[in-house]
């Protein structure tokens, strides 16, 4: 009987309180009609009631107290954990407050300054290199100009030793310009002091490669009266192998007031030149 199977299931549900009023009414109706189900219901109801007999031991009276103790411990545990957290937090904050804040700021500043300097120094030469070179060149020019002016001024000095010093300045000038050579040649021809003229001759030797210097030297042969200077020029002409000096030197030989020793020297020089 399929119907009875269904109601037997309903019995269990009835006992465990799972049936509503309508379902309970239908179950009771079936039980009043079906004897076997009614008997089944009686036995299962008895079993259900008997389960009550399974008693349990009463729990200890101290359970609530035990749990209250657990609860208290737990609260304290959480509290101390919070305290530890707060303690560490403040400690870290203090650490931050004490020293490193200023130091760190200072370090950062220095790093930034360093980086800035690095950029400045590495970029600046690239931008201004040509300008710097120009500056140096112009400064060098100014120095040369000053030396030249100084020399020309000094050559007019009444003291012979000052004039020699002026001539020696030309050693520091590598590239002779026209003004200096003219000043030197004028000194060679006109200076009253023999020593000054010798020094000038020496200075001019340095510029002997310049054609106008050679020409000036050749022309100055006639103007020289001092035997020492005459000899020196003659030697220089030989050294330079200057053929144009032959004619002035021969004219010098014909002069009456020329020293015999000088004449001998000139003759020797002429011999070498021709």
């Amino acid at each position: 009987m399929a119907q009875c199977d269904f109601y037997q299931q309903q019995m269990s549900l009835f006992l465990s309180g799972m049936l509503n009023e309508e379902e309970t009414a239908r179950l009771n109706e079936h039980l009043s009609l079906c004897t076997s189900c009614s008997e089944e219901m009686t036995s299962i109801k008895a079993l259900w009631a008997e389960l009550d007999a399974i008693t349990i031991e009463e729990p200890s009276a101290g359970m609530q107290a035990s749990f209250n103790a657990i609860l208290k411990n737990y609260k304290e545990d959480i509290g101390s954990r919070k305290n530890i957290f707060i303690k560490w937090n403040t400690r870290i904050k203090q650490l931050w407050q004490l020293q490193p804040r200023l130091q760190l700021a200072y370090s950062l500043l220095m790093v930034i300054v360093g980086i800035g300097m690095g950029y400045y120094l590495s970029n600046k030469p690239n931008v201004n290199e040509s300008a710097t070179k120009d500056q140096i060149n112009s400064l060098a020019l100014q120095v040369t100009d000053m030396q030249r002016t100084l020399m020309v001024t000094l050559l007019e000095n009444p003291s012979a030793s000052e004039r020699i010093r002026a001539v020696n300045y030309t050693n520091e000038i590598n590239k002779a310009d026209i003004k200096i050579i003219q000043a030197l040649l004028a000194t060679l021809n006109n200076d009253p002091n023999v020593n000054v003229r010798l020094a000038t001759l020496e200075a001019l030797t340095k510029f002997a490669r310049e054609p106008n210097v050679r020409e000036g030297l050749v022309q100055s042969i006639q103007h020289q009266e001092s035997p020492i200077v005459q000899t020196a020029i003659a030697e220089l002409m030989v050294k330079l192998q200057e053929k144009r000096s032959v004619k002035p030197l021969q004219q010098l030989l014909n002069k009456k007031d020329v020293d015999e020793l000088v004449k001998a020297k000139i003759k020797e020089s002429l011999h070498q030149l021709i």
Binding site: Q8, Q9, S12, L13, S16, M18
Partner: peptide, 13 residues
């Protein structure tokens, strides 16, 4: 739950 309650109770019986 309904199915299992019945089954459990039958088994116990």
């Amino acid at each position: 739950v309904k199915v299992r309650v019945h089954r459990a109770l039958s088994e116990l019986k």
